[in-house]
């Protein structure tokens, strides 16, 4: 059984490797022989990679500092099972003031989880990082109007919190634990 699982994992890894290889061969070929679609895809890759590389290294260093300097007790007290409603408020404030969206929120949430934050707070945080980021919200309000943004906030924040609580209940029953 274990052997078979290991085999499957190996096949998956090889498949990934082949897909990535084909992709890069295609991109290289396109640049070399001037195939427009391949060049455009390659340019997309580079511009997105550069955009992320501006944010991610800082984010990971900040996460590392957080893990060494902030005590488990403190995280548990505010974001754990003892935190109560306050935990959700903190999660939303943290998500709102943090940049980078989901790709930064995910490693942060895994660091919080390791320090004892409860799952519902984590899901609220990840959900909120998609919808309440302040810079993004200002942008939205200036293009679509304040009313649009206000309704979106008022409707989506409670839904995120409620769904996170239910998701936590379901996952506790299933003995779920997050990878790290």
């Amino acid at each position: 059984m274990k052997e078979r699982k290991k085999n499957k994992k190996n096949i998956n890894r090889n498949l990934y490797f082949i897909i990535i290889l084909i992709y890069f061969v295609f991109i290289a070929y396109s640049y070399f022989f001037g195939i427009p679609s391949g060049i455009e895809i390659g340019n997309n890759l580079i511009s997105f990679l550069l955009y992320m590389m501006k944010i991610l290294p800082c984010a990971f260093i900040l996460i590392g500092l957080f893990e060494v300097w902030v005590s488990r007790e403190r995280v548990e007290k505010h974001l754990g099972h003892k935190g109560g409603l306050r935990g959700y408020v903190w999660a939303i404030i943290l998500a709102g003031t943090m940049g980078g969206g989901l790709l930064v929120a995910l490693p942060v949430s895994s660091a919080l989880y390791k320090k004892g934050a409860r799952l519902s707070v984590i899901f609220t945080f990840v959900g909120a990082s998609a919808i309440v980021r302040i810079p993004m919200t200002l942008f939205e309000a200036s293009f679509l109007g304040i009313e649009f943004t206000a309704i979106r906030w008022l409707a989506s924040i409670p839904l995120i919190v409620i769904s996170s609580i239910f998701l936590e209940k379901y996952l506790i029953k299933k003995n779920y634990s997050m990878k790290s």
């Binding site: 290294p57 990971f60 260093i61 996460i63 590392g64 500092l65 893990e67 060494v68 300097w69 490693p107 895994s110 660091a111």
Partner: peptide, 8 residues
């Protein structure tokens, strides 16, 4: 901290 950042 830097090691953690790198590993993550």
């Amino acid at each position: 901290a830097l090691l953690i950042a790198y590993k993550r």
